[in-house]
Each structure stands twice: as structure tokens, then as C-alpha cells.
């Protein structure tokens, strides 16, 4: 099977994730899009590792998953806290940290 297809898929997923992060207002959706981007990267890692018969990319993928899991814990907690105080999960509402 041609490994290029996996890379195309990874690119497509990354683009979807990136546009989601930039365009959506809902913090939960933005968060999910970030996860999508991470997994696109993971897919690219393992594909390249496979084609080059090296294990480095696969190890990287594991690390990425661990970091992503930790990030989810912290990120969701922040979103929960903001929602509790402001009754909103729109990222545009939280624009006070400026100037």
C-alpha cells in the first residue's frame, strides 16, 4: 500500500484541525481540533517510521499521546472553571488579557 495516502490523510486531518482552531468559537471544539492536529502529526510520524523502518517516529507518537493526555486534563479543567464563572465557553468572550 502506498504510504503517501497516509500522509495525505494526515495533511487533510491537520488542515481540518488547524482551520477548526482558527475559525471556531466554542472552546470545546477548538480543543478537539487541537487533538485532531496532534493525531495528524502522530499519523505522519508512524507512517514515516514505517517507510524508513525506524522506530524513532513510533516512540515520538507515544510521547505525543502522553503529552496530549496530560494536556486534556489541564485544558478541560480550565474550560470547566471558566464555564462555571462565566456561563460561556466562547473563546472570544475571554479576551481580557490584553494591552
Amino acid at each position: 500500500m502506498n504510504p503517501d495516502h497516509y500522509l495525505y490523510l494526515a495533511a487533510a486531518l491537520f488542515t481540518i484541525g488547524a482551520s477548526g482552531v482558527l475559525l471556531r468559537r466554542n472552546a470545546i471544539v477548538v480543543f478537539m481540533c487541537v487533538e485532531l492536529m496532534l493525531n495528524a502529526a502522530n499519523l505522519a510520524f508512524v507512517t514515516v517510521a514505517r517507510t524508513r523502518s525506524e522506530v524513532d517516529g513510533q516512540v515520538f507518537a507515544f510521547f505525543t499521546m502522553v503529552v496530549a493526555a496530560a494536556e486534556v486534563v489541564v485544558g478541560l479543567a480550565i474550560i470547566m472553571a471558566i464555564f462555571r464563572s462565566r456561563r460561556s465557553v466562547s473563546v472570544d468572550d475571554d479576551s481580557l488579557l490584553k494591552f
Partner: peptide
């Protein structure tokens, strides 16, 4: 320069991209 800090997460994300 400080006007660039507008507080919108998406702007920061865009600049990172």
C-alpha cells in the same frame, strides 16, 4: 506594538501558525 496583544486566543494561534 502593544496593540498586537488584543486578547483573542485565535489571533495568537494565527500568529503561531
Amino acid at each position: 506594538l502593544r496593540l498586537l496583544q488584543n486578547g483573542f486566543v485565535r489571533t495568537y494561534a494565527l500568529s503561531m501558525f
